[in-house]
Simulated assay, not measured.
Amino acid sequence: MDEAREFCRRMYYGPLRIEPVGDAPRIDFSADVVLLGPITVGEVGYGTDIRVSIEALETAYHVLVPLTGVLRSRHRGAVAHADPTRALVYRPTGDIELDWPGSCRLLSVKVERAALEREVDAALDQRVVSPLPLGTGFDLVDGPGRTWAALVRLLLSELCGPDGLASQPRMAARWRDMVVSGLALTVEHPYGEEPAGLQGPHRPRTVKRALDAMHAEPGREYRTRDLADLAGVGVRVLQEAFRQHVGMSPLTYLRRLRLDHVHAELSRADAGQASVSEVAYRYGFTHLGRFAGAYRARFGVTPSQTLRDRR
């Protein structure tokens, strides 16, 4: 059981508690888990009844797809069940408790928060809030949910095999992008055709060009003038467009984006092999004092605490 806990904490979340249900149960834990850029995909089973407790995810969205058995979940005050006909979706807020029977084996898919939010934003071409107001699950029998789950299973099978197409870096990257974009089109949310769900007007191309540039190279030393040139407008025009359609200035958005990237990297890093300063420098933070203050203001903990906890 200790080995199972350590494995899942290392691959998924640091503040993860796994406790057996009953007296001296026999555990038959097995898991195939692959980290591929902003997604972590795995097939996991314990072979005995357990209870799992996870603190608020903060940096990721998570999907559980039972292949066998029934999973009972408590999240944000709501109780939900998942089985091979319906997946569960978790937002990066609120603690999670799972009653996981030994008969349940499932696909566990973690997607970095910024990656899914960016994909939903791009798919809808309209402003969305963070965290996304997603539904608690989606159907696995018909529609896009069935296709998405099949895609994830195939990707995991290919990545775990020695000679599959997914072992080629370019193919793996494309498959990874398909998983994220497919999930963005599968999850239930209030955007799209529901007018009441709109959080703002469509973003103009000038704003999207600047956003695309920042997301493509978050560590690059951009000035507002650089972003305005990429967008094909003047500095004042870009700043006003960001104020109206993003709710902040371009450089404020860039700083938040960089902080999110640092947080995500520290959350999955090995505390013995990673350095806070190295990660911060890589994302353009050259003044470590100001960086640490901004980080704590955004996430409520210091960078070193995140690395130590290995969230």
Rank of each mutant, 00 (worst) to 15 (best):
L259C: 08
Q126P: 01
L183D: 09
D28F: 03
D309I: 14
A269I: 12
G200Y: 15
Y90H: 11
A80H: 10
F138R: 02
G42N: 03
A173V: 06
A173D: 13
R105T: 06
L132I: 12
R91N: 06
S277L: 12
G234Y: 07
S275V: 03
Y222V: 15
R311F: 11
R9P: 00
P162I: 01
S103N: 02
P84C: 05
L238I: 01
L156D: 11
A241E: 13
G197T: 13
D260V: 05
D226H: 12
L35G: 14
P66E: 03
V233F: 09
P204G: 14
R118Q: 10
C160R: 09
A196L: 15
A172Y: 05
P15S: 05
W100I: 01
P15A: 04
P190D: 08
H62C: 10
R17L: 04
Q305H: 11
T206K: 10
Q244S: 06
C8F: 06
G22Q: 03
D125Y: 02
S157A: 14
L134C: 09
V44N: 06
S103D: 12
G293Y: 01
D28Q: 05
A150V: 00
V279Q: 12
A213P: 08
F299S: 07
G234A: 03
P169R: 15
G45K: 01
P218H: 05
R51A: 09
R51E: 07
R105A: 05
G284Y: 06
V89T: 12
A231R: 11
A297V: 08
L165M: 09
